[in-house]
Nucleic acid binder design. Structure first.
Lengths: 346, 346
DNA sequence: TATAATCACACAAACGTTTGCACTATTTTT
DNA sequence: AAAAATAGTGCAAACGTTTGTGTGATTATA
């Protein structure tokens, strides 16, 4: 029952011509006469011939495959991102090889190895939280496999990346609150060492000082993003000397957890205290007290853009070939944007 | 700067032995003397030799790659599923090639083609909503590429699949409500033609009759899952002759939309009327009025199980080879399970 | 001591495709 | 009519690996 798939050889034998002629005929090579071209192409169709890609990959040393490594697929951000990646890759005739690191640097390394062995043409990576050492990525340079990082970017020079600038969005968030009349604005930020945390803080400081509100470090608390951490951070903010009337939360989940704590303390949401947060998860539509607005980070677009960039790199690579290794690095920044929710006040 | 990666030939030349010896030495073949084995393995390490997988794939006609086609990655269900798939594949030393159909049958076909050309060893598929014709899958049989379907299963005989039995969960849901004292229980079901809808209905009828409550068709309404559809279905249920005190919703989103409508009609949630639903999205933890309980469908486990099944099939295939094509088909059913939420009453 | 078994390795084919080169007709140019 | 260009094919190498078979040397058996 084993169907032997038809090959170029088969066609050659049946038509009594050489394999090279068949190959060229199928590729519309100008050297081949119209007559034979037709005969070959017709027989190919009859036999349902399909080129063996693995043979072609091998022969050309290319796989038209992109490896994607990201921390956690079940996070909404990354599942959107992979969606954008997959769509863009498909459009560019590339295929996506997927792997998740689960924020474990060892798994990240292992995936990198696997993908390299699979001879992916290029890589798309959002690094794991626990990755602080980047040797495994630097090693890739030697293999001439281009990497485009997105969202979670390693702090090393000479890399390509696509990221979303949070500063702008944070500024918009503060300004939004300012216009609503808030003057004491707090922030529940993330773990201190995260770059995302720093960006939010920068935006906060920038916007506060521009609005002639002075920057009060007591109004900004870091937390570990657990429910308990958020609760205690919230409590700390609300029991401080200057009680904020609005809080910018690290993300939507933090906002929702904070809301719970606020209600436990018998404050009225959107009256005593309002929330703005990051991420804009679909969840917000369904909660009783969603944040007034969210800073959208466009994960789909980030994924898409990163993929397009990588494909561009791959094309340049095959064109230049041996030329001077063009040492220009793509640093693409998408702007985050505040999305105001349609919340019924009260 | 172009690094030529070291090959088996290189090693052979440097040690002045044949490539076959090198190959066997690297594979610990018993025919090779210990001395040469050591020399080869050491030089391999020195040169950082890594076998060229594309060559091996080509040579062996295997790719250790699994193609995955699913409708929409950004849906929570599928992103969990792919997570399970990826983990299981990785454990079995397979790699995952990813594609989403966006519920478009043409894209589904195209992905199938791409994956076939890439010579994936096997396929994991959750079919698109709009797929009613299954020829493209049947065609795969000829290429001897095994397919395991999951969650969304085509209605054709002789296929492998992994699915989740909703009937049991539905029965549990009704019993749960019965124990809470509810006697008039409504259901907001999905589109009529969906198999998922039928299963829920079956479970509903089964549980109602077993509980000596008679099955009243007026208590079950179908809806199109849009916000508006849910609203009107809810209204219809609540303004009927027999007003239900509890409602089983098609999924968590439907439940939340229904809750909104119920509140608009000035009924008290969990007092006048309670909800139970399907899916158990993380969202439930954050909403003001989550359903009392959800029927969990274990997407991660479904993905995992489907992958393990496929890998098993692939191993059998390579063992049996030309043997009788073992015509047993895996039909794996996971049981859904009611998860009771920790909701503060009132 | 002659024969058989074992060991350690080399040779070469095969997987399917692409592509530089050589070759033979035919046609075009001088 | 001879030389040159061109069109249409075939040959063979190459990509890196695995694996069946062949072969000489060493060791074990009778």
């Amino acid at each position: 029952m084993e169907k032997r798939l038809p090959t170029i050889k088969e066609i050659a034998k049946q038509l009594n011509i050489s394999v090279s002629t068949v190959s060229r005929a199928l590729h519309d090579h100008p050297n081949i006469g119209l007559r034979t071209k037709m005969r070959v192409q017709q027989l190919a169709k009859e036999l349902d011939y399909e080129p063996n890609q693995t043979a072609i990959f091998f022969q050309q040393g290319k796989t038209y495959t992109i490896g994607v490594i990201l921390p956690e697929l079940s996070e909404a951000f990354f599942s959107s991102a992979i969606s954008g990646i997959e769509d863009a890759a498909h459009k560019g005739n590339y295929t996506v090889l997927l792997g998740q690191s689960h924020d474990d640097i060892e798994k990240e390394k292992h995936l990198l190895d696997t993908f390299r062995k699979h001879r992916v043409d290029g890589l798309l990576v959002s690094i794991s939280k626990n990755t602080t050492n980047y040797e495994h990525f630097e090693a890739l340079q030697r293999y001439n496999i281009p990497v485009v990082f997105f969202d979670r970017i390693p702090k090393i020079p000479n890399i390509h990346y696509v990221a979303c600038n949070m500063i702008n969005g944070t500024v918009q968030a503060i300004n939004f609150l300012f216009k609503k009349g808030h003057r004491i604005i707090g922030m529940i930020n993330g773990p201190e060492k995260l770059p995302a945390t720093k960006e939010r803080l920068d935006g906060y400081i920038q916007a506060m000082t521009k609005s002639r509100l002075k920057y009060d470090p007591n109004l900004v608390v870091n937390c570990d993003l657990t429910k308990e951490g958020v609760a205690s951070s919230t409590e700390k903010l609300l029991s401080g000397k200057r009680k904020p009337t609005a809080i910018v939360a690290f993300n939507d989940y933090v906002a929702l957890d904070a809301v719970q704590q606020v209600r436990k303390m018998k404050f009225k949401i959107n009256k005593d205290i309002s929330f703005v947060s990051f991420a804009n998860l679909p969840i917000s539509n369904y909660t009783a007290y969603p944040p007034l607005a969210s800073v959208e980070q466009f994960p789909y677009q980030q994924g898409q853009k990163a993929t397009e960039t990588l494909i561009e790199l791959l094309q340049k690579k095959s064109e230049e070939s041996l030329e001077n290794n063009n040492a220009t690095f793509y640093k693409i920044i998408l702007e985050s944007q505040l999305v105001v929710h349609d919340v019924k006040q009260g």
